[in-house]
Design a binder for these strands. Structure first.
Lengths: 146, 146
DNA sequence: ATATATTCTACTAATTCGATAGAATATATA
DNA sequence: TATATATTCTATCGAATTAGTAGAATATAT
């Protein structure tokens, strides 16, 4: 499940994508426009900033803006920052791999094989969809065998 | 993220898949064999039974067995029972659809479009992988445009 | 100086997760 | 019919996570 945090974060990023090049946007405006609790949004934007996706300016005339053009920021990046790895289980994560405590043979683990496929499919979509092209993208999933 | 509950459940189901036709398996044996806390496993198997995936028999000579052949039970069915819908957000779930409270226009929601694709990709994999063919299945994800 | 914004630290209520405990019930068989 | 064997049911629990809120600190433009 996508958390509310990630959902809010994505909404905010899409909004900032549309405002890209028009100068900084106030948290207050963003919160009101996208119906996000302001205080919660503060934390979210801060986290996205600390991870290099946003640029901010304090004081009068300040606000938030994307740190690069919207077509260079993917949905996958945003989700990973706010919700952690895309992988359904840590042992199939490419960005945050962790061995399963109990698992003694990764190569033969059925669950791992399936979840690896789910991770790859999800990542293929989320990592190749930018804030700009999100509305346009189209994908299909094909079985190799059968 | 796949919960431990679902992970345990899948392990148990794969195990029962291998024992299919050989008579009922004891919870105790299953727990020990797959390293699952026994008391926790009891609840899991009960839930899978109540949802029609398992058959059980009490008393001596009893135990659990699949209610149908392993190739008729999919990983998706097991995961949905134990962890709920596959969809990352309720508004793209086919089995448990729910409108987003805030969303006023589903058609234009960027997040929805992307998560719909993620859901479809995940479901295509999990719903077409049975307990039997799980180890064999191979998938690819292709972009339509690009 | 002052108004305006972000930033930081801390807290909290509610829910979910990962179990555990113990009693109740059903079944085979001696 | 008594007994051992299994599942089933109800209830509880600690820890972690989620979804926020509160308020002070800090930076900046004018």
């Amino acid at each position: 499940m996508l958390s509310k945090k990630a959902k809010y974060g994505l909404k905010a990023m899409f909004y900032l994508g549309k405002q890209y090049g028009k100068g900084p946007v106030l948290i207050s405006d963003l919160a009101e426009e996208e119906n996000i609790p302001k205080k919660f949004l503060e934390l979210i934007l801060l986290e996205l900033k600390k991870n290099g996706l946003l640029h901010s300016k304090m004081g009068k005339g300040g606000g938030y803006s994307l740190s690069k053009s919207p077509d260079e920021i993917t949905v996958g990046q945003v989700v990973r920052i706010l919700d952690g790895p895309l992988a359904p289980i840590p042992c199939v994560s490419k960005t945050a791999y962790m061995k399963c405590a109990e698992c003694d043979n990764e190569k033969t683990c059925e669950i791992r094989k399936i979840m690896m496929q789910v991770r790859d499919a999800s990542a293929a979509i989320l990592d190749h969809t930018s804030l700009l092209e999100a509305p346009k993208a189209l994908f299909t999933v094909n079985r190799k065998s059968k």
